[in-house]
Write a protein that binds this DNA or RNA. Structure first.
Lengths: 229, 229
DNA sequence: TACTGTGAAACGGTTCACAGCC
DNA sequence: GGCTGTGAACCGTTTCACAGTA
């Protein structure tokens, strides 16, 4: 059930790290949701939470919550449940959001500007330190405190700030070109808001967010009345 | 493998409709991706596509593509593949995007305004016909041709236009209240951009889009170098 | 008593492999 | 030959049920 390596686990580590490839994607997704819920709970002065409480808040079973967390270590206290603050720290460490991430945004259209104004990113440790556009009209200004540069300076600035993530907010037609530039500049991960499938090298992680796709899922549910969620 | 009812299938229907609850959520998601890819192909004058071509464009196996489509009918032509235009129409019909959907947007902050300017919605048949905000500053103007109303008029306008979907673009703290108002007004589905879990009646479909969650998935992949996607 | 952690069973989705068709 | 549609095998995830712990 744990790493394929037969050796014993290291003496006593705070957070166990099974081969990440062994962790289902769905588990990582739920981790984010647990984290969100735990913050709400802590803000409401709740110090401790059981797997069944946390689960029912999100529509999951208690066993699922426990199994998910058990992939990474032993965070619970029998008879007590999970201490919210402790678990928050553990999940942040697992997700890697206990470190600060520097982010570049490419494309300062409607969506790009909106995201620059979104406080939620910084709250989770994601700092947009530079934005890029190829339209000379938009240059040399700052938006929401973020400096705007011409696309020509992408590699230079990415390296200078050691930027590790890129957000693609350009139209579908230019998204692949932008992705190639970001990869060349050395980012490790990409969030793609354009409605196209990017082809990227193996070693680059990516997440696609397509708003039309989300609406289509909803349309299907409503049209077929499947009462989902 | 098909409906539990043992009777024979109806004589010859264009699109078979198994109990939607039997269709895995993941399948519906991929349908959206197929649709997106098919449009690109058709725009590039490709008339016909095989399951293996379509699959490899998206990183799926050929069998997966065929199985997914076979949930809904027999759209392929042995020896030929799938005709792009035909399949586009079939998928649109399955997803329900062959009909027009009227949409209300609530919350005209950064994100709300950006989405009002997003052309992609209208292209897929989603029409935002009214936007709402509780800030009197923002009233009586139009943005991107969409009229803005005060929240007080939500029920009235939703009923008047027979609006069926709602987009929640308000902060987390007010999202649940807005959701309750939308449900009361009679929408059938909700897209929630606020980082909270909504509690909704069974019969309302919903989709949550949380940008921080997406970034966290990416952060995990990069931090654990799992080369995902 | 109240709860976690976890093997084992159950479930559901994906892949395989091939019959059938153009 | 090329390709779809699909039962069956396979595999990964979820749920069950209970031993273990404070």
């Amino acid at each position: 059930m744990f790493p394929k390596t037969i050796g014993m686990p290291p003496p006593k580590q705070k957070i166990e790290t099974p081969d990440p490839l062994d962790v289902p994607k769905a588990v990582v997704n739920r981790l984010s949701l647990y984290l969100r819920e735990l913050r709400h709970l802590l803000r409401a002065q709740k110090m401790t939470v059981s797997s069944s409480e946390l689960g029912s808040l999100l529509g999951f079973t208690d066993a699922q919550v426990r199994k998910d967390l058990a992939y990474f270590g032993h965070f619970g206290h029998p008879g007590i449940g999970y201490r919210c603050e402790e678990l928050i720290n553990a999940i942040r460490s697992i997700l890697g959001t206990d470190q600060e991430w520097t982010v570049a945004m490419v494309g300062i259209g409607n969506l790009g500007r909106a995201l620059l104004g979104y406080r939620g990113f910084a709250d989770q440790g994601f700092h947009v330190v530079a934005a890029f556009d190829s339209d000379p009209e938009k240059l040399h200004r700052q938006i929401e405190g973020v400096p705007i540069y011409h696309m020509d300076r992408l590699t230079e600035i990415v390296r200078q700030h050691n930027i590790r993530l890129g957000l693609i907010c350009v139209p579908a037609t230019t998204a692949q070109k932008v992705a190639d530039r970001l990869v060349e500049a050395g980012v490790a991960g990409i969030v793609n808001f354009a409605p196209v499938t990017l082809s990227l090298p193996e070693e680059i992680s990516s997440v696609g967010v397509d708003l039309s796709t989300e609406l289509e899922q909803l349309s299907f549910s409503v049209a077929n009345r499947d009462h989902s969620r």
